[in-house]
Simulated assay, not measured.
Amino acid sequence: MTKSELIEKLSVENGLLSKRESEMVVNTLLDSIRDALVEGERVEIRGFGSFTVRVRDAREARNPKTGEVVSIPVKKTAFFKTGKELRERVDLE
């Protein structure tokens, strides 16, 4: 499902929200999650999962084409862990 499909589904299933209002709701939710992760906070949505930031250590790797050793710097990456309820529902289907 894409973001636009989510917005469409939200506006269709909830007769109180227009498509524009649904887009604002989805954007607000996603922006809030993004802003929290940028601040280093953990975001937990009960029954769905949690978003955290993980720090990946610096390391050396090889360029597979040339075999040259390449230095990869420290970086932060977003990580999502599914909640128990979501895992169970997906497993049933």
Rank of each mutant, 00 (worst) to 15 (best):
S18P: 07
R87Y: 09
V12F: 07
T82K: 13
S71A: 11
E88G: 08
G49P: 00
F80A: 10
L6F: 10
E68A: 15
V43W: 00
V43S: 01
R87D: 09
R42Q: 14
I72H: 06
I33H: 00
V74W: 11
A58G: 13
E39L: 09
E41Q: 14
N63P: 03
N27P: 01
E60N: 14
E85H: 13
E60P: 00
V69N: 05
R89L: 11
G49S: 07
I33M: 08
V70Q: 06
R20K: 15
K3A: 07
L17R: 01
E8G: 02
K3L: 08
V26S: 01
E13K: 15
P73H: 04
R42G: 04
R87E: 11
G49A: 05
S71E: 07
T66N: 08
V53N: 01
K84A: 11
K84M: 04
L37D: 00
N14E: 04
A58E: 12
S4R: 10
N27Q: 08
E39M: 12
S22T: 00
N63T: 05
K76D: 05
E93M: 11
R20M: 07
I33W: 00
G49V: 00
G83Y: 09
E93K: 09
K81F: 02
P73D: 06
V38T: 09
E5A: 13
A36T: 01
I33V: 15
K84S: 12
G67Q: 13
E85F: 02
G67T: 03
G49H: 05
K76F: 02
P64I: 06
K75N: 12
E13M: 06
L16N: 11
K9R: 12
D31W: 01
D91K: 15
F48Y: 09
